[in-house]
Amino acid sequence: MADLLSVRNLCSGYGHIPVLHDVSFSLPREGVSAIIGPNGHGKTTLLRTLSGLNRSWSGQIEFDGAPIPQSVEARARAGLVHVPQGDQLFMDMTVMENLAMGAYARPKGYDLQTGFAEVFDLFPRLAERRQQRVSSLSGGERRMVGIGRGMMAGGKLLMIDEPSLGLAPIVIEQVYDALRKLASTGAAILVVEENPSRIETVAERFFLMDGGKFEWTGDTEALRNSSDIVATYLGG
């Protein structure tokens, strides 16, 4: 079967400043992949360019066997789901309304209750808070709403930007436990994470991004055997 996502020579940036230089990679239809690497080297920009929030300057993106559509909303409808950095929730809506928005692009007959059940199963805390406005939630709970909202879309690829950003270690554990469970269902997930040790046991494929390109690619075993390379880029 063809790759789910295939990117060739992608360039992008902000204003006149280039950030991504000729990025090429592809993702299969199952499993968790991780983009690791130091901050400020294009990881978030790559996700934003894939979802269309940033314009791509040049290069090709193929998604699900066809050239990816132009607009952000069309890409979302095609099944490319982006859980952006900093959650970007609908702050004056309740947890349920946020989750319902996640399923906005689903066909008319879709029963929201099925999606709610899946999300609440993964994040029981959200079930308790379902009628609260998200502006009253804690940072960890907001992250859960963000990921849950992404799950509700039922897309083909779920891209999650820095799921651990700004959270306390114990909450990070909870979030990664949830990701592990999600991964066990066989969904295709792409996670951006600065720290490879957190994602090491979740993902099976790793891309090390530095200076707007992939400097190293490999699977879990290769990552364990290449601690020197990782240390060079991450100082760890």
Binding site: L53, V72, E73, A76, V81, Q88, F90, G102, R149, A153
Partner: peptide, 8 residues
């Protein structure tokens, strides 16, 4: 932006 990411 978030609304567009939902397909709006």
């Amino acid at each position: 932006d978030a609304a567009r990411l939902m397909g709006v």
